Simulated scan of single mutants.
Amino acid sequence: MIKLALVGSGNLAHHFYESILPLEEIQLVGVLSRNAETLASFDAVLTTTDPLALPAADLTIIAVSDDSISKVSQKLEQKHGLLAHTSGAQTLNAIAGQRRGVCYPLQTFSKSRAVDFSTIPFCLEAETEKDYELLEYFCSLLTQRVVRMNSDDRKHLHLAAVYVNNFVNQLYQRAYEILDGRDLPFDLLHPLILETANKVMDNRPSDVQTGPAKRGDQGIMEAHLEIQSEANQKIYTLLTQAIQNSQNT
Rank of each mutant, 00 (worst) to 15 (best):
S87R: 14
L194A: 15
L76E: 00
Q233S: 03
P212N: 06
E136V: 07
L54G: 02
I69Q: 01
G88Y: 14
E136C: 14
D183C: 13
Y104C: 01
R182E: 15
D50N: 05
V102L: 07
E226Q: 15
Q218A: 14
K111N: 10
S73T: 01
Q244M: 04
A84P: 00
V115L: 03
A231M: 10
I95N: 00
I235G: 00
N11M: 07
A197T: 09
L194K: 15
E133V: 11
I20W: 06
I2V: 11
I193T: 04
A53I: 10
K3Q: 15
N248M: 10
V7G: 00
L12I: 10
R34D: 00
C123W: 13
A242E: 13
H156V: 08
G8T: 10
Q144Y: 12
A13Q: 08
V200E: 04
L179T: 10
E177G: 01
L32M: 06
A5R: 03
N150C: 10
R148N: 08
N169C: 05
V164K: 12
L239Y: 07
A161T: 09
I227H: 14
A175Q: 06
S110M: 09
T49Y: 00
E77H: 01
T128C: 06
R204N: 11
T210C: 05
E133F: 10
G10L: 05
C103H: 08
D202G: 12
Q74I: 03
A89H: 13
L179W: 10
D207V: 12
A89R: 15
K199G: 05
H190N: 11
T237S: 13
T38Y: 11
L189H: 12
C103V: 09
G8P: 05
M149A: 09
R99V: 00
E77S: 02
H15W: 11
K3L: 06
D131F: 00
A94I: 02
S112A: 14
L82G: 01
D131G: 02
T196D: 06
F117D: 05
K111C: 04
H190Q: 15
Y176A: 12
K234Q: 15
Q173D: 11
S33R: 06
I220V: 15
P22G: 09
G181V: 10
L171T: 08
S19D: 13
T143K: 04
C123I: 08
D217R: 12
E230G: 11
